[in-house]
Amino acid sequence: MRLTQGCFSFLPDLTDDQIRTQVQYCIDKGWAVNIEFTDDPHPRNTYWEMWDLPMFDISDAAAVMLELDACRKAYGDRHYIRISGFDSSHGWESVRISFLVGRPKEEPGFRVARQEVDGRNIRYTVESYATMKPEGQRYEA
């Protein structure tokens, strides 16, 4: 399967030049830029690990690209990596954009667990096949 979270997952994987344009867009808007990674891509997993702190006062996307390279060296191919832009202005104070910039080579996807209960009722749970393994070993060959 292909995880389609984030703003651009239906486009071909972004090149570094393309990522740079979107990061610069965030910077120009005055948003903080955050790099995060995880090996638990469940859509309700809100808190991915932060690659250092969000970058608040940068003017050039190059700084983000350097950090992204370092994150990829440590976790690339074994984790999902996303970049988000955070807007602290009043009335929003949340993420404005979020897109994937790295994904594991193999994506085993998710299963739907159905617990059949009273009558026709079903309680659904979506589980990532990867998270059936311990943290850190989920996307190894």
């Binding site: 995880l3 979270q5 891509p41 469940h42 996807g109 979506v126």
Partner: peptide
């Protein structure tokens, strides 16, 4: 209405699993 709700939620959950999105 109950038929619609039951089948729709089966569809929603299957689609969530197929895409990893809410």
């Amino acid at each position: 209405w109950r038929e619609r709700f039951l089948y729709c939620m089966e569809a929603v959950k299957r689609a969530e699993a197929a895409t990893g999105e809410i």
